[in-house]
């Protein structure tokens, strides 16, 4: 019996099997994709209005739904007590149900290869203020307007002041080239490797706190021969 306890606990190691250095770069925006959902205010206030906004890449016609109970609208299992249709639009303002905490909302959009779902939990114990990306710079100065093909450009997201000791993670996305590392704690400096061909790169930094809050900022960088 006790030997089983040891083996059962080792099953917690399962997430270690994920591959983090293979396949498509998570920072590359090469297909329609949801990146984040922001609720304003960040903390769920049952009966109050909350504005939902999905950040996506080449995503439009966003439709929203929520679970009627505090249950993630996943598949499987899907919402056991049914879903509440919230409407369409991005952003969309809704009235939070009075007795569902956390409230799981799901945004979907139609993409060429299927439906893109994204879910997000809104909870009353979340922080009211979302973190923000105030600016994107190079770490030691302003971000240049253009970089050479194949060049490496450092990028850093300037964040709003932290409200507590909670951990904030910034993810970097680009429509041309790739970021390494893709994710950083707080105001760490990442590196954009520009594509070998001229392009106009849209770069996006998304900051998330450990309570589900999110904010983002988009910038453009030209990749062209000097």
């Amino acid at each position: 019996m006790l030997q089983r306890a040891l083996l059962a606990a080792l099953a917690l190691a399962l997430p270690m099997s994920a591959c983090d250095d293979m396949g498509a770069e998570p920072s590359m925006l090469d297909a329609p994709r949801f990146l984040a959902v922001r609720a304003t205010p960040g903390a769920l206030a049952p009966g109050d209005e909350v504005t939902l906004e999905a950040l996506g890449w080449r995503v439009d016609a966003v439709t929203w739904a929520a679970c009627a109970t505090a249950w993630a609208p996943t598949d499987p299992p899907s919402c056991p007590a049914g879903e509440i249709a919230l409407g369409s639009g991005n952003p969309l303002t809704i009235t939070a149900p009075a007795d569902v905490d956390p409230l799981w909302v799901r945004a979907t959009a139609t993409a060429p290869d299927g439906v893109l779902p994204i879910v997000r939990a809104l909870a009353s114990d979340a922080r009211a203020d979302n973190p923000e990306v105030l600016a994107l710079d190079s770490g030691d100065g302003p971000l240049p307007v253009a970089v050479a093909p194949g060049a490496e450009q450092t990028v850093r997201a300037r964040l709003s002041a932290a409200v507590d000791d909670g951990e904030r993670v910034v993810s970097y996305y680009t429509s041309a080239g790739s970021f390494t590392p893709f994710r950083l704690y707080d105001e760490g400096v990442t590196t954009l490797t520009a594509p070998d061909a001229p392009a106009e790169a849209t770069i996006i930094a998304v900051v998330r706190d450990d309570a589900g809050g999110a904010g983002w900022l988009t910038a453009t960088l030209r990749v062209e021969a000097p």
Partner: peptide, 14 residues
């Protein structure tokens, strides 16, 4: 991928 969980910032498989 079943969906992208924006709260946890991960894709959830099925």
């Amino acid at each position: 991928a079943a969906y992208y969980d924006a709260s946890a910032d991960v894709y959830v498989p099925r």
